[in-house]
């Protein structure tokens, strides 16, 4: 181990670790988002079988981000990762209008889960770089977010491939955890 990495470790001992859970349908862009957060190359992504996890530093927090595969077959395993989640991040392919209904149903099921009750929700309306992407406001309506009373939530338009909007979403995450847990 080099001197530099020891110094780096000493300096950035984070105040708090957060556990973020990334969920959403397959091809929504969860892994791309995860890699973007970790400043990694996003051009070689493959469909996630199982899960990926990465730790990222952001605003004095150590974010442990769990990216779980979105394929229908593995959705039943999502619940194994609910425990101790600080923020739920739900990713949506804004251009995939055919599956807007399906993604909405999955999200509603998640919000009914006891282990996720009261957990702040960030929805990324991803793929805004695509021409036929639905705007964030339209997605918020079709997901029924406006009637959500039991938790704080936010919808953030973004493009995970270009990185636009991703940071704004993470800032919201860090702020809302701070206020909630003092």
């Amino acid at each position: 181990m080099g001197l530099l990495s020891i110094l780096r470790k000493l300096r950035s001992s984070p105040d708090k670790e957060l556990r973020l859970l990334l969920l959403g349908l397959d091809n929504a862009g969860k892994t791309t988002l995860l890699k973007k957060l970790a400043s990694e190359d996003v051009t070689h992504i493959t469909p996630t079988q199982g899960f990926n996890i990465k730790s990222v530093q952001s605003e004095g927090f150590k974010l442990n981000v769990w990216d779980i595969g979105g394929q229908r077959k593995i959705r039943p395993y999502w619940r194994n990762y609910f425990e101790n989640t600080d923020v739920l991040i739900y990713v949506i392919d804004s251009a995939d209008r055919k599956r807007m209904e399906e993604t909405s149903v999955e999200l509603m099921d998640l919000l009914m889960e006891v282990k996720l009750s009261g957990v702040p929700l960030l929805v990324y309306a991803n793929k805004q770089d695509l021409l036929n992407a639905a705007p964030a406001s339209e997605i918020a309506t079709s997901l029924g977010l406006l009637t959500l009373k039991d938790r704080v939530w936010q919808i953030q338009a973004c493009s995970a491939t270009s990185g636009e909007g991703v940071k704004d979403g993470m800032e919201w995450v860090c702020k809302n955890v701070k206020t909630k847990k003092k």
């Binding site: 091809n27 996003v42 469909p47 077959k73």
Partner: peptide, 22 residues
């Protein structure tokens, strides 16, 4: 398509970053 292990009804999006190579 799911019988041979694609994720959904249309394999198109499953090739992603590996493209035609996959």
């Amino acid at each position: 398509w799911q019988e041979i292990g694609f994720q959904g009804d249309d394999p198109t999006t499953d090739f992603r970053g590996m493209g035609l190579l996959g």
